[in-house]
């Protein structure tokens, strides 16, 4: 589904050029669950932004469903984001003045879907994340976990095939973090391609495989068993004095 070939991304910073991504080659199949790991500044967010069509490669080829998207103009990229990609953020990014349901309706409002249809679809999405009891609440009346579930409902309401999550549990306690991950995993099992950026091994271990990035490069590719081991080491580190 995703093909990256020698993807580079650099931008000027002062007098120098920062190379955020250097010759990234990767293929992600439909329905996969991939974790992207690495220290901050390693380029994992830049990669996610390029995958999400919020950013374009400076060079190299990014094919989404066989279509080269690196060369699309702003209008076409907007369309790709609208219909094919869902985003989940660390800070939820719910619009504070809108109710939970209205937040879920938001992408459909701008996509020109009729009020009746978008209400119905938003309700379905809210039911999928088990938030159908709290549709009328505003974000500040919801807990962190609830907010993230609303955000997931919003990210999936347009029926995307690719869901990109940037530290989706970074702002949550472990219980609600687990609920959110369960939810994402469930959607992945129903066929949604899921890419999660995280530095938390406990989040990464849920993925089918992991990509470890350093200095803009993928330095290691981890299988499921590697991820579990990594999480084990992290757990041990946490309990040790």
């Amino acid at each position: 589904m995703i093909e990256l070939e020698k993807v580079c991304r650099s931008f000027p910073l002062g007098d120098e050029r920062v190379h955020a991504l250097v010759d990234v080659d990767e293929q992600i199949r439909e329905g996969e669950h991939v974790a992207i790991m690495g220290p901050s500044g390693s380029g994992k967010s830049t990669l996610l932004n390029i995958l999400g069509c919020l950013d374009k490669p400076s060079s190299g080829i990014y094919k989404l469903d066989g279509r080269e998207v690196g060369g699309l103009d702003e209008e076409e990229l907007t369309d790709v984001r609208r219909h094919q990609i869902g985003f989940v953020f660390q800070f939820f990014h719910l619009v504070p003045r809108l109710t939970a349901l209205e937040n879920v309706e938001l992408p459909m409002v701008f996509a020109g879907i009729s009020p009746a249809e978008r209400r119905e679809r938003a309700m379905q999405a809210m039911t999928r994340v088990d938030m159908n009891e709290r549709v009328g609440h505003r974000p500040d009346q919801l807990s962190g976990g609830e907010r993230q579930r609303v955000a997931i409902a919003r990210a999936t309401v347009m029926g995307p095939r690719l869901l990109l999550a940037d530290e989706p549990t970074g702002n949550l306690d472990s219980v609600s973090g687990r609920q959110v991950l369960d939810l994402l995993e469930g959607m992945n099992h129903r066929g949604l391609t899921l890419i999660v950026v995280t530095h938390d091994p406990a989040v990464a271990r849920r993925a089918d495989r992991g990509l470890v990035m350093t200095d803009g490069k993928i330095v290691r590719r981890l299988e499921k068993s590697d991820l579990a081991a990594l999480a084990g080491i992290a757990d041990a580190a946490e309990v040790s004095p």
Binding site: R82, H83, I85, F87, P107, R154
Partner: peptide, 8 residues
């Protein structure tokens, strides 16, 4: 956010 949601 709007841009990420595909708002032109």
């Amino acid at each position: 956010l709007l841009k990420a949601l595909g708002v032109s």
